[in-house]
Structures are given as structure tokens and as C-alpha cells.
Nucleic acid binder design. Structure first.
Lengths: 190, 190
DNA sequence: ATCTGATGAGTGAGCACTCACGCACATGAA
DNA sequence: TTCATGTGCGTGAGTGCTCACTCATCAGAT
């Protein structure tokens, strides 16, 4: 019938948005994103109805990349600790290899623009992650509360380890190991 | 010689900014802040030359409140662990008692608008805190690197414990205790 | 030939910040 | 104590800019 929409432009827009958002956060102007992607500003709005839609799509896109990286060499048969450490190392390695994507994701995570359904969709990208944090309870908390709390602790410790590793890649191995030790104890002893 | 500037208005502006920033982040409009403070928009710019100046002043103001709270009952003669736990508990209690201030501070911390000198000034507000995190080294890191890393880990664990305690005050005691256990091991064993 | 993607100047809303004016207040002379 | 004086605060409509988003028009795939 007519000209089809280009998958290339879709990807180019997401990649351009990653770079601009990493630098400017939510203040990233759509005009700049479009220019970086090599398309007109109007074209951006043909692919993403509003900036909010773009921002949510970008978040899911980045989470997708991250989750793919996390599952690298994932062996469901390995011990809990081995699985946890593999995911942990993949996470930090991904952060070091993709600092821009990583920064953009952090910016989006605190932006307040990510809809609950986007978060829900992101969780489904790596179902096997669920099982990793439900090994035991923290004293004084029931299983559900404890699991949520532990998950949040793990994410925040990982975030710190990753940001330090990124800043000082020479020490990455030490940050990885120390961070994992802290987290592993959080998962199993606390 | 002339009409003096009003300390009341200065305070009112900082308090209004706290509320609006907690809700809107950096996107908080100066017009709304001024209205909430009960002054004209032009007045805001008589007290703070630019929005960036206001934002930095607000950060320091909130850090000041926090540091005062942290030092509640601080006993330099107590054991390291006792001092650490006292500060820890004060921190979480402050977060529960001042959710708005706490949210505003988090928003400012990630805004990228806080100048290095503002951060430097904030650190000086509670010098005794320095000594709390320099007990030992993490394996593979020298003392300085380890200290900075440990400090960041502690802050992020505290942040999580506080946000969970805030959301679910009934469980606050459990989150406080679990979080402190995690952090204490981080400080001493890792 | 036809329909739809691509374009970029245009639009209106919202923003930080300004400024000319009115007035409150500290000061000093009486 | 009283009052004249001038300094500088308080004001809010105004200014210029940036932004997300639109639309009339063109270009190209089928």
C-alpha cells in the first residue's frame, strides 16, 4: 500500500534517547534526541506519541538489554550462591561496559515518569531472578516483607558496587568481590 | 538605614521549597514556591539570586536539620558500635518524622545541581561522623578507597531501611535492626 | 495512482528571571 | 519625642526563551 515504518529509525531514536537522557535526565529535549537520531522532530512523535511514552519505552528497552546481559551463562542447575554470584558479576560488568545506558536507566528510575505497568513488564523480563532472593527471612519480618526488603538492599548495594567499579575499573574486581560478600551475607544471615 | 530583610521570609521560602521540591523535584516552579511561602515571586529572587542558589541553600538547610537530628544524644565516649547504632537509629527516626524533608533531600541529591562546595559544607556539619566508618579495610582495597566505598554502602543501606520504615512504620523497628546488622557487618567484617 | 511516512516551521504553554514603582523602616537632626 | 530623609525591600506584570507537540506539505514505497 504505502511506505512502511522503519525499524532502524525506531532503534536510532531509542539509542539517541539513551545518550541524551544519560546527560540531561528528564530534561532531555525531544528536539535534541531527534537530531541525534538523524530524523526530524515530527518523526519522533510518529514513533512515540508523547515524550512520556518514549521515556517508558526507553526504560523497558534498557531493562531488556540489562536482563539479557544478566542471564549470560545462567545455569538453573547451579547452586544458589553460584547463580547469585554469576548474576551479580554480570550486572557489574554490564555497568562497566555500558556506562551511558546505565546512567540513563538510573535517571529514568528516579524520574517518577515510569508507569507501574512498565515496571511490571520489566520484572517479567527475567523471571528466574525471583527465586534468587527468597532463600530465608530477616528476623522480625515475615517472608514477603523480608523478601522485598532484601531485594531492595541487594539492588542498592549492587548499584554502589557498580558505580564505584565504573569510576575506577582497575579496582572493579575488588568492588565486585566486597559487594558480593556484603550482599550474600544480607541474603543468608541477617 | 533601610528596611531589613526578614528572617521569617527566608525560612518560609526554604520550607515552601522543601514541600514543592518533594513533590515536583527540580521541576518545582519558583512561582509555586513563592506562592506557598506567601510572598511575591520577585521576593524569592531577592533572597536567592537564582533557582540554583535556592536549591543549594535548601540542600544545606535540610542537611543541617538532618545532622542536628543525627547528633541527638551522641556520646563520644561510647563504643564505636554504640555510637554507630545511635546515629543509625536517629537517621531512620528522622526519616519517619520528616518524610517531606527526606524526599526533598533525595530529589536534590540526584539532581546534579548541588555544587561540590555545597557537598563539602554539608560534610562539615557533623565532623564526628568521619570517625565512624574508618574502623578497618575491605579486602583488596586500600584504606581510602575502602572508606569511601564503605561510606557509600552504609548510606545506601540506610536509605533503603529508612524508605521501608517510612512506608511501613509498624515494622520500622525490624527494618532498623536488620539494616543495622547488615551495615555493621559491612563496616567490620567485609 | 494512492496512501502513508517524513518533514520542520509554527503554536501555545510554562518557565526563570527582571524592573519600575510604592512603601516600610532605620537613622539623625531638631 | 518627632519628623524628614533616603535606602533598599516587596511587588507582580512583563520579557524572552525553551519546550512538547501539530500540521500542511512533500516524497517514496507499493
Amino acid at each position: 500500500m504505502a511506505r512502511p515504518r522503519s525499524e532502524d529509525k525506531h532503534q536510532a531514536l531509542l539509542e539517541a534517547a539513551t545518550e541524551i537522557v544519560a546527560g540531561h535526565g528528564l530534561a532531555a529535549p525531544t528536539a535534541q534526541i531527534a537530531r541525534r537520531a538523524g530524523v526530524a522532530e515530527g518523526t519522533l512523535f510518529r514513533y512515540f506519541a508523547t515524550k512520556d511514552v518514549l521515556v517508558n519505552a526507553l526504560y523497558l528497552h534498557l531493562k531488556g538489554q540489562l536482563c539479557t546481559a544478566l542471564q549470560e551463562g545462567f545455569d538453573p542447575a547451579a547452586s544458589l550462591k553460584a547463580r547469585a554470584e554469576a548474576v551479580w558479576n554480570n550486572y557489574i560488568d554490564w555497568g562497566i561496559a555500558n556506562p551511558t545506558a546505565c546512567r540513563a536507566m538510573s535517571q529514568l528510575a528516579v524520574s517518577g515518569k515510569i508507569l507501574p505497568e512498565t515496571h511490571a513488564a520489566a520484572v517479567k523480563l527475567f523471571p528466574a531472578l525471583e527465586g534468587l532472593t527468597s532463600a530465608c527471612c530477616l528476623s522480625g519480618l515475615d517472608a514477603n516483607q523480608s523478601d522485598e526488603f532484601r531485594r531492595a538492599l541487594m539492588a542498592s548495594v549492587a548499584q554502589v558496587a557498580m558505580s564505584f567499579s565504573s569510576t575506577d575499573p582497575a579496582r572493579a574486581a575488588a568492588y565486585k568481590a566486597s559487594g558480593f560478600a556484603v550482599m550474600w551475607r544480607t541474603l543468608t544471615d541477617a
